[in-house]
Structure formats: C-alpha cells, structure tokens
Amino acid sequence: HSHMSHTQVIELERKFSHQKYLSAPERAHLAKNLKLTETQVKIWFQNRRYKTKRKQLSSEL
C-alpha cells in the first residue's frame, strides 16, 4: 500500500469535485501528472465515491 502525498490528494480531490467518474484516458493522464499508477487513481476514486455515498445515506437518516 503506497502513501499519497498531501499534494496528490489535493489534486485528486479537485478533480473529483468536477467529475466523479474518469474515463480511462483521463485516468491515465491524471496518474501521469501526479506520478501515481492508474490503479491508484482508480481505487482512490472508487473509495471516494463510496465515502460520498455513505455520507449522503447517513445524512438522510
């Protein structure tokens, strides 16, 4: 499990705020920019979407 830097997370968050789903080319581009693997980016987005979904569910209770 590799640790992401604060800067990388900020960039991922910024991208996520604009779009929740990335196409393969977008993911490849973002990964390259942030010096991450595409898998890391993919998993981060999956986890981030899951967290957002959970938060929405709990706020509706």
Rank of each mutant, 00 (worst) to 15 (best):
Y50K: 15
H18F: 08
H3F: 10
L12V: 01
P25D: 12
A28F: 06
L34R: 00
T52K: 08
L12I: 02
W44V: 01
F45S: 00
F45H: 00
S23V: 01
L36W: 03
Q46S: 06
K20W: 06
T37M: 03
L34F: 02
Q40F: 06
L22P: 06
H29N: 11
T7H: 13
L57P: 14
N47Y: 12
H1R: 08
K55G: 12
Y21Q: 03
K51G: 10
A31W: 01
K20R: 09
R49K: 03
L36M: 07
W44K: 00
H1S: 08
N47F: 10
M4N: 01
R14I: 07
L57E: 11
E11W: 05
I10M: 14
R14C: 13
V9E: 11
K35E: 07
F16W: 05
A24W: 09
T37L: 03
S58K: 11
L34N: 01
I43M: 11
R54Q: 13
Q46D: 07
R49N: 04
K53V: 08
H6W: 12
N47H: 13
V41S: 00
Q8C: 11
Q19V: 07
A31D: 00
E11K: 06
K35S: 11
A24C: 07
Y50A: 14
Y21L: 03
W44M: 03
R48M: 10
K51P: 09
K51E: 15
K35D: 09
N47A: 07
S5R: 06
L61M: 15
A28T: 06
Q56L: 13
K53F: 05
A28V: 06
K53Y: 07
F16I: 02
L30C: 06
H3L: 09
T7V: 13
V41H: 00
A24N: 07
K42D: 10
R49S: 02
K15H: 13
R27G: 03
L34W: 00
R49L: 07
R54L: 10
E60C: 15
R14G: 04
F45P: 01
Q8R: 04
P25E: 15
I10Q: 12
K35W: 04
H1F: 08
I43Q: 08
K42W: 08
K32H: 10
W44H: 00
K51H: 12
Q8P: 01
L12M: 03
T52W: 13
S59T: 12
Q40D: 05
K51C: 15
R54C: 15
V41E: 01
S59Q: 12
H18C: 14
E11M: 09
H29S: 13
S5E: 04
T39L: 14
T39Y: 10
T7K: 14
R48L: 07
S59A: 12
E11R: 05
S2I: 12
T52C: 15
A28G: 05
V9L: 12
S59G: 15
S23K: 05
S59I: 09
E60Q: 10
E13G: 02
S58W: 09
S2K: 14
A24K: 12
P25N: 13
P25Q: 15
L61C: 15
K53R: 12
A24Q: 12
W44N: 00
S59E: 14
F45E: 00
R49H: 03
T37N: 04
L30K: 00
R27W: 06
E26P: 00
L57W: 04
K51S: 10
E13H: 04
S59L: 07
S17G: 06
H1V: 09
T52F: 13
F16G: 03
Q46G: 04
S23Y: 04
H18A: 08
K35A: 11
E26S: 03
Q19H: 08
Q8S: 03
H3S: 09
W44L: 02
Q8A: 06
E13S: 03
I43Y: 07
K55I: 09
F45Y: 03
N33Y: 12
T7D: 11
M4F: 11
Q40E: 08
S23F: 02
K32T: 07
H29V: 14
L12G: 01
W44P: 00
L22A: 01
V9K: 07
E26Q: 06
R48E: 07
N33R: 15
S58I: 08
I10S: 12
K32Y: 07
F45Q: 01
E26W: 01
A28D: 03
W44S: 03
A31I: 02
S23D: 03
L57F: 07
